[in-house]
Write a protein that binds this DNA or RNA. Structure first.
Lengths: 202, 202
DNA sequence: AGCCGTATCGTACTCAGGTACTAGGAGAGT
DNA sequence: ACTCTCCTAGTACCTGAGTACGATACGGCT
């Protein structure tokens, strides 16, 4: 396959890692950020956020680069906020420079397909900013029966017992019954503790 | 490799396509949405948004399913809005049911790695919308006095009125008094709603 | 046939949470 | 001085939530 990518980094370890793990890819090394201008348009590039020559490029300079190529920013100390900054400037991806080999391979594959690659935790923040996404923190589900899951979710979302009963077409007494079981299974004392557990707080 | 996934669809074409393209995967077919409860926790599942049995599941039912498994919603007529709805409910991915084989393969790989898969155009929208929403989640603090903030935070963390009173060296009555003011200022009815607001859920 | 898990529902009870109405003292600003 | 907000607190009262101690029915497993 004719797959090649370039990388810009000052860190020998990062370079060696990426070169070795990406077996499907031919990796070229860039000496300076300005050499991005010499690559054919649409090239796949990994840029180490710690590379020294980065500081000489303005914000609009970055926007231009991101338009020209598909660029993945790799940080050795990634954070959601840093990732957000790069993605907002137009980066095609943001990942951990020392991430798992399989993950880095995946990042390259995805970005090469003209998709964007955003890590899990940052993605959740993006979704949370738009709607009310909440996943994870969740082996609580596995302890519950299907019916109990519905009741637990609604109670955790702030619905009253009566509201839950009406929504599910059962009596309030049955809702209470389910909740008692749920509290016992999840080792919580009331619906507020349940909500904290379901929504992954503490 | 021991890679298997399940699919729920009424559409023979979709089933045939996915089965044929995903050579690395063993694909099982599900007959009904309820069979999700019988799969081992954390299973990888593709669900056709047009499947007839979907309508019988409530919103909270979906949330529970999404926490139990890694579920990719596949639509034959995808839209950003529809995608956003599913992802907000907790889906692990949203893609085109008739998408390019290589893309679908990638979706499975990515989701199997416990990442989220969001298409390019939807991702752009998420990134565009991040700025304003993120600031107003901390808005509740502004409306409250310092003392009220302390009480609100503790109540939102699940502490009882008595526990808050003892921690702050005041009577339970005063805690109640603060809470009544807090509820009024933040336009919520009880401590559970307060917790959801403080922790940025709805 | 018997056991067990799940889902449903009844009555009665306790109690934490929340409201209504009220009010005194401390401190800041006019 | 006067007003205003904040923090504090008492008594009385109501209600939703949760528990105790049941019950019936259905389906699967041994």
């Amino acid at each position: 396959m004719n797959r090649s990518a370039s990388i810009l980094t000052d860190d020998e370890t990062v370079f060696a890692r990426i070169r070795s793990l990406a077996t499907d890819w031919a990796i070229h090394r860039l000496g300076d950020i300005q050499t991005l201008n010499e690559l054919p348009a649409g090239s796949l590039v990994i840029v180490d956020t710690a590379a020294s020559s980065l500081s000489r490029t303005s914000e609009s300079g970055w926007r231009a680069f991101f338009q020209l190529h598909r660029i993945v920013m790799a940080s050795s100390q990634p954070s959601d906020d840093e990732g957000l900054r790069w993605l907002n400037l137009g980066a095609s991806g943001y990942c951990h420079a020392y991430g798992a080999p399989a993950t880095l391979q995946q990042v390259l594959d995805v970005v090469a397909s003209d998709e964007l690659w955003v890590g899990r935790s940052l993605m959740k923040r993006l979704l949370a900013g738009i709607g009310k996404h909440r996943t994870d923190s969740g082996n609580w589900v596995q302890a519950l029966t299907p019916r109990e899951r519905e009741v637990a979710q609604m109670a955790a979302d702030g619905e009253s017992n009566l509201a839950i009963a009406e929504a599910l077409g059962i009596t309030e007494r049955t809702v209470k019954s389910h909740l008692t079981t749920i509290f016992e299974k999840l080792a919580v004392s009331d619906r507020l503790q349940l909500a904290l557990k379901v929504h992954g707080i503490r």
